[in-house]
Amino acid sequence: MILENPATGAAADQKHYQTAEKEPVEVMQMYFTAQELYGFCKGNALKYILRSRFKGTELKDMEKALQYMKWSVDVLHGVPIDPRK
């Protein structure tokens, strides 16, 4: 997952997210229905929100949740998710 602020330690700042030719969310867009992809994004946002205060990385987790919420809105608008943005 790519966040706009690479200083957060999110995917944009981590090499293991930069080496794959396709990100998992891109593969999901190829094979999932819009409803399935929307549910995935919503579920991940909820996951990051609920555990944010227990891992010692609350800001980072809330930023990740925000990214998944943005992606869920993109899905509802029919806009393809670009994890490199």
Rank of each mutant, 00 (worst) to 15 (best):
M1D: 09
M1P: 05
L3F: 01
E4T: 10
N5R: 06
N5P: 03
N5I: 05
P6R: 13
A7E: 15
A7I: 12
T8V: 13
G9Q: 09
A10P: 07
A10F: 07
A11W: 00
A12Y: 02
A12N: 06
D13F: 03
D13S: 13
Q14D: 12
K15C: 08
H16F: 10
Q18R: 02
Q18D: 03
T19N: 11
A20P: 12
E21H: 14
E21S: 14
K22W: 14
P24Q: 09
P24T: 06
P24L: 09
P24D: 10
E26W: 10
E26S: 12
E26H: 11
V27M: 10
V27Q: 07
M28Q: 12
Q29R: 00
Q29Y: 00
M30S: 04
Y31D: 00
T33C: 07
Q35P: 01
Q35A: 03
E36T: 01
Y38A: 06
Y38L: 08
G39V: 09
F40N: 01
F40E: 00
F40P: 00
K42Q: 15
G43H: 08
G43A: 09
A45M: 06
A45P: 08
L46C: 04
L46A: 03
K47C: 10
Y48C: 04
Y48T: 04
I49E: 14
L50G: 02
R51M: 09
S52V: 04
R53D: 14
F54P: 04
K55P: 01
G56V: 11
L59C: 09
L59Y: 12
D61R: 04
D61K: 05
M62S: 06
E63A: 05
E63T: 01
A65P: 01
A65I: 00
Q67V: 08
Y68M: 14
K70E: 14
W71D: 01
W71G: 01
S72N: 08
S72W: 08
V73P: 09
V75A: 03
V75I: 09
H77W: 13
G78A: 05
V79C: 00
P80I: 01
I81M: 11
D82A: 09
D82K: 11
D82W: 04
R84G: 11
K85T: 10
K85W: 07
K85E: 11
